[in-house]
Nucleic acid binder design. Sequence first.
DNA 1: GACCAGGCACATC
DNA 2: GATGTGCATGGT
Length: 225
Amino acid sequence: MPGRDPLRRRLLRLYVALAKHFGPQHWWPGENALEVAVGAILTQNTAWANVERALERLKSRGLLSGQKLYRLPEARLGALIRPSGTFKVKARRLKAFLHFLHERYAGRFGRIARVPLHAIRAELLSVHGIGPETADSILLYSLGRPVFVVDQYTRRVLSRHRLVHPEIGYDDLQSFLTSRLPSDPALFNEYHALLVAVGKEYCRRSPRCAGCPLRFDLGGKPPRL
DNA sequence: GACCAGGCACATC
DNA sequence: GATGTGCATGGT
């Protein structure tokens, strides 16, 4: 009986409070599905501003297409995405993803649309360089699938509001959320973006949530730290 | 100069 | 299965 689950209520209240304070987040910034997927790989352990530089270098050269990136030599790709950091690693990972897209779906994102969620997630996870968060980012933000993306901000913010244990694993945290929220891609999209927004602003260098406007705003006790 | 950023693969125990 | 480490640029 989900209506009686107090955690569900707190999750929804947290969402409303975040939405009210931060407003629409407009994730994911990208002009098409491929750009979003490339961005998902480039942003691994990297600030988004650096990813934008790398994406712009590709875009300004007209290379931001599956076919062109697929044909681009790995070393050249690495040089172009250098501003996003760990560029040799990411060039290899992008290549692995483009190879997968080319071999499995003839390079067409649209063909993935019909594949069942659990199947396409498993396929993405089998690609070198695509782990749970990157796979889910692609599924939600690039393909519009109802998947909640979990990251360190998600874990940090929710644990500080005493909704989950600070060291909860990826899959458990994802289940915690998806079992309590309507299975709505637009909601998952906005909620995750909002968690990142509040995490960046108030959780990053402040173990005590200093200044966070949401700290006592959930109807429960404040987080004990 | 240290620390961090919208992780992941791999080695080692 | 848990834990540690390399990757690397650019902002704070």
